[in-house]
Amino acid sequence: MKTFKVISLQVVENDELHDFDIVDGLIINKEDRQGTWLVETYLSNEHIRFFQKAEQSKEDLEIQVVISHKANDPAAFMTSIRCIKEMDDHISIMFEGKLKKQRNEYAEILLDDLVQKGYAGDELIREFREKMISKPRIPASAKPRL
C-alpha cells in the first residue's frame, strides 16, 4: 500500500465542480488487483447534508483530489461513500473507488476550454501558459473535443 496527503477535494456533479475546503486528508492506493483507492477527508460539518445525500443516493460519485502538492494536477476517481463520521464541528468522509484515468489530460482539457472561450493566437498561448501555472479547476470529465 502507498499513502499520500490529500491537498484538495472537488466533487463533480453534472460537469460542475463543487470545491470543499478540507482540514486534512489522506489517500491510500491499496495496490490490490481491483485497483482500489481509499480517500479520507476531514472537513467542516457544514457540508454534511451534501455528503449524506450523495451517500443515500447509492450512485457513484466522481471526485477529484490534488495529492501531495498544490501544484499537482487533480486525479479523478469514481467512488462511493463508505462512511461519514461526525466529530464535534467536523466530519470525516471515507470514499472508496477507482482511478478514472491513468493518463492525465489536464493540458488538453484546458486548451479545449480556452479555445471554446474564444482565445486564439498569441492570446491563447499566453492564457494557456498562465493557466498551466495557476491550475484553474476544470472537471476531468470534460473531454477534449477532437
Rank of each mutant, 00 (worst) to 15 (best):
E59L: 10
L114S: 04
R145T: 12
A142T: 15
H90F: 13
I28N: 11
A76N: 02
Q10K: 11
D21W: 04
L110T: 08
Y119G: 03
V11H: 02
I109Q: 01
A71W: 15
V39Y: 04
Y119A: 05
K53L: 07
E123G: 07
D88P: 00
E46I: 08
E40Q: 11
A140D: 02
L124M: 11
F95E: 01
R49Q: 08
E130M: 02
G25A: 05
V115N: 00
I63L: 03
G25V: 06
K143Y: 13
D73Y: 11
V65I: 15
K30Y: 07
E123H: 12
V115G: 00
K58P: 01
H47K: 08
F95P: 00
D113G: 06
T3R: 07
D112R: 04
S134N: 06
Q10E: 04
E46Q: 08
L114K: 04
D24V: 00
E130N: 15
I125V: 15
M78Y: 13
I67N: 02
C83R: 14
E127R: 15
Y106H: 04
G121L: 04
A71M: 11
D60E: 13
D21H: 09
S68C: 11
L9G: 01
V12N: 04
L114N: 04
R82E: 09
K85Y: 03
L110P: 03
R145W: 03
A107N: 04
I109N: 03
E108T: 07
K101W: 04
I91C: 00
K100V: 00
V39F: 06
L61V: 15
I125T: 15
T36E: 08
K101F: 11
K100A: 13
D19V: 01
K85R: 13
D112Q: 10
D88Y: 09
A75Q: 09
K135S: 07
E55Q: 14
L146Q: 11
I133N: 09
L110M: 03
M78N: 11
F77N: 04
S57Y: 10
E31C: 10
H47Y: 15
R129A: 07
R126S: 10
I67G: 03
T36L: 06
A76Y: 01
E31L: 13
K85C: 01
I48T: 06
Q56A: 14
P136A: 05
T79W: 08
L38W: 07
M1K: 12
Q116R: 15
H90V: 00
I133G: 02
I109H: 01
I22P: 02
E62K: 03
